[in-house]
Design a protein around this nucleic acid. Structure first.
Lengths: 368, 368
DNA sequence: TTTATCGATGTTAGCGATAACGTGATCCTT
DNA sequence: AAGGATCACGTTATCGCTAACATCGATAAA
């Protein structure tokens, strides 16, 4: 017969005939305790079904062993793996993670950061913050520790884990140019996205490096979902401008674009080549399989939390930046590059790449 | 210049020249306060940048305004929408949500439930618990409030939100039989999954109702991922038994099966029809688009939290069960049913069904 | 023996909030 | 005008735990 949960440390102490302090010491393996006492106390704890109240503990230790993870939208396939990497790493260190969706709304981004502050979490990982700097920085300053994912702000004293999106997009553009494409458009995602702006920068730079003009009308913002991509792609395809390649903010947008192409009778990749970004599971499974910029999302989450824990442990250096370099994965939605134009670093996997994590759903073989 | 966060209610009280109790009353809009005092205190709070410490508050109120959400694996596309529905509902009521992945490991399921207990969350939503009853029940009894998703246990005093999986599978089987199939196999997912067992039950019942024999060799357990589905499907297809229809534990398994079929040269749906379950985004986008049993995952999460909050507010009735009835969505992976055999309730959408939620990534039009 | 050392425990004082009750004013009642 | 509401606060006592210091017997060093 297991007792209910209202047991306190005082009950245990009374029952064991020792002070609460002694019980506390057994609990936390702190200080010197005689083996007999330890066993005695442990037995009583077991018998009463005592579980320490971490609320009370947090009040005095000033540490909650909780973290916040702020994402725009967990239903966006980019984020679940990040969350998983974050939670695995946190749990291994004894931390729990609050998951907060901002749903791409500034107001809710503010709300959850405030909530996490009141909850006194030991640190926060903020992914793809959409708030402008002047609103974001004050909120971040109030947090105990912060790691930003795919966002840089000045003066926030935050760690940063970011994907080199500009580089990724440059790779994509070079790949398309290498395949003979000359009229590229970009579906650039939410204007408030820092990563989106980086990708636009990479897009521009790569075009200019190749001596090509950048047509601002061919850079279209869109919501980071299927619909957004489909809509934006339709606009591009229906405009007078002939376009033979689409570089997309993420894979969802790219797959939306794929749908728009099919709708409008544009063959992929013959008429229009399409490149996505992130390499979500979906990318390898659609028809045609989507070329994309791959990055290990699990690692992003895991590294971010690891950095956060480091900063919690040693609030020393203000700066810390981890840059993750993405790689292009060429699939059927883009043409083979001309043998001459060597697209360095490009992989064309026989079967989906090996996942970093054991139980991960593998991309598997690509249905063609 | 905004102050740092170490401001306590006592600081505010001192600065405003009132008691901490008065400040507390302003904070919580409780009791009678004169307008002047309220404004005075509010100003000081503003000026000092005071945020109440919810750890201290929780200690005395015995409520943390936190919930736990336990899922097998957030990277499984079935769960992000549930999490989103749960978080939206929780946040609207002022609650935060701890996300916990059990990674299909009993040991970790135990660990996170213990952690949540120590954190003194006000309630827990447990999705697809894999622990056997005798281990699960004691852990649940220790939680303040529990809602189980897709799992039933005796004597746990928990609310239940569940999908009528048996019915869903019956629909799937009837649909396949209506399409003229006679040799059906089932890839039934993890043996520890309650939903999986329900689906097997539905499978058996529907076959028996049609006067067909159930071949136990054609019911294969498998991990709930692409790989698992592919592997199990290969086993079935390579066995001597001729099979013309596959009913799958979930869409990932079904898509894995699709890959196996392609590999082995079995045409879908001509040679083998395939039905998935859950209607994840992926399902409508693969080739051929996957017929599946649809259920609103967002609603599952939202309802579960709503039920949890109800039970927290009124710990009255021991029992509460919400059954969500799924519907078959027929796509190209299954043959049209014969006009005679009316498969009631079946939808064959022109374009993906309307999502319940505004910003949701729509299934969109089916390429094919 | 005396004293210092140390190991094993107990005592006291909060952590930052709210619950519950107490206390003067003020304002009606009758 | 005395008694009783009502209002607008203030006081006190926890909530369950741990930090920091105090204690106390036993062993080792002088």
């Amino acid at each position: 017969m297991i007792a209910r949960s209202n047991v306190t440390i005082a009950d245990v102490a009374r029952e064991a005939g020792v002070s609460t302090q002694t019980v506390s010491r057994v609990l936390n393996n702190k200080g010197e305790i005689s083996p007999e006492t330890r066993r005695l106390v442990s037995d009583v704890i077991q018998r009463l079904g005592y579980r320490p109240n971490s609320v009370a503990r947090s009040l005095v230790t000033r540490r909650t062993l909780s973290l916040g993870l702020v994402v725009p939208d967990i239903t966006n396939p980019f984020f679940p793996e990040i969350a998983r990497g974050a939670e695995d790493t946190a749990l291994a260190a004894g931390y729990s993670v609050f998951l907060c969706n901002t749903t791409e709304q500034a107001e809710r981004e503010v709300a959850v950061l405030r909530l996490l502050e009141e909850k006194r979490v030991d640190g926060v990982v903020v992914c793809s913050a959409r708030l402008p700097d002047d609103q974001l920085v004050p909120l971040l300053r109030r947090q105990r520790t912060v790691v930003l994912v795919n966002r840089i702000v000045a003066g926030a004293a935050a760690g940063v884990v970011r994907v080199d999106d500009a580089d990724g997009t440059r790779q994509a553009v070079r790949h398309l140019l290498g395949g003979g494409r000359r009229r590229l458009a970009m579906l650039s995602g939410p204007p408030a996205s820092w990563g989106g702006r980086e990708r636009v920068r990479g897009f521009r730079e790569a075009l200019q490096a190749a001596g090509l003009a950048v047509d601002p009308e061919l850079i279209l913002a869109c919501p980071p979902y299927l619909d957004g991509g489909a809509r934006a792609a339709r606009r591009v395809l229906l405009s007078r401008r002939a376009v033979d390649g689409l570089v997309c903010y993420n894979d969802l947008v790219a797959i939306g674009a794929l749908q728009a192409c099919r709708e409008l009778g544009a063959r992929v990749p013959e008429d229009v080549a399409v490149v996505g970004c992130d390499d979500i599971l979906l990318a390898s499974l659609v028809t045609p399989p989507l070329s994309t910029i791959r990055v290990s999302k699990y690692d992003i989450g895991a590294s971010a939390v690891r950095m956060l824990l480091d900063r919690i442990a040693a609030p020393g250096p203000e700066a810390a930046e981890l840059v993750i370099r993405p790689t292009l994965v060429a699939r059927a939605s883009t043409p083979e590059p001309h043998p001459a134009a060597g697209a360095a670093g490009t992989t064309r996997p026989a079967a989906g790449g090996a996942a970093a994590r054991p139980s991960a759903a593998r991309a598997g073989c690509e249905p063609g």
